[in-house]
């Protein structure tokens, strides 16, 4: 006897809750990277190894929330908003799925682990991804309490306590109120 095959279409979904969490997180992270570049010499040094000018973005594949950060011709690092469309990007790092991005930004999966599990997609010159990944790690160490930062990065840098704390205050201040 022939089987009856029931057919139904399922289309794309707009995920409001996850985006509502990730969008401000990425906004904050993007601005914090710019702030860290102005505050911390190690972060600055990583930016110095990148070409000038240079724009990179971290976002969710294919067109989810994102952050765009640019090092201008004057060498200053600025946050350039949350849209990748229409921006000339040298290095695009995309997390392969919204859910995975959510795992990473709720610190349940570290950046290194996400890379090891091939959850990120890198487009552009891969050599530039390395300083960028280090910048993101250091920014996270500044932003997050030690217990949480430990989940996000491989090794917490051995900074003097005053460096962490003063840096942290300055970065938070600049991130929230501009600079």
């Amino acid at each position: 006897m022939a089987t009856r095959w029931e057919y139904r279409d399922h289309g794309p979904i707009r995920e409001i809750l996850r985006c509502a969490y990730l969008t401000p997180m990425l906004w904050f992270m993007g601005r914090a990277v710019a702030a860290a570049a102005a505050v911390d010499t190690d972060v600055r040094r990583e930016f110095d190894t990148l070409p000038t000018p240079f724009t990179f973005a971290l976002g969710v594949w294919p067109a989810g929330p994102a952050m765009v950060v640019a090092k201008g011709a004057d060498g200053r690092v600025r946050y350039r908003g949350g849209r990748t469309a229409g921006v000339d990007i040298d290095l695009l790092m995309q997390i392969k799925h919204l859910e995975t991005a959510f795992q990473m930004f709720t610190f349940r999966e570290s950046t290194a682990t996400a890379f090891a599990r091939n959850r990120l997609l890198v487009q552009g010159d891969v050599a530039n991804a390395v300083p960028v990944a280090r910048v993101l790690d250091m920014t996270e160490v500044y932003l997050l309490p030690r217990v949480i930062a430990r989940l996000a990065v491989k090794r917490i840098p051995r900074w003097k306590p005053w460096r962490t704390w003063i840096g942290r205050l300055r970065i938070y201040w600049r991130t929230l109120w501009g600079y």
Partner: peptide, 18 residues
């Protein structure tokens, strides 16, 4: 050292390298 700091394979190394 400078060239090594810009190589992607560092990401997959178990221990961090500065």
């Amino acid at each position: 050292v400078a060239a090594a700091m810009r190589d992607g394979t560092a990401i997959y190394n178990p221990e961090d390298l500065d």
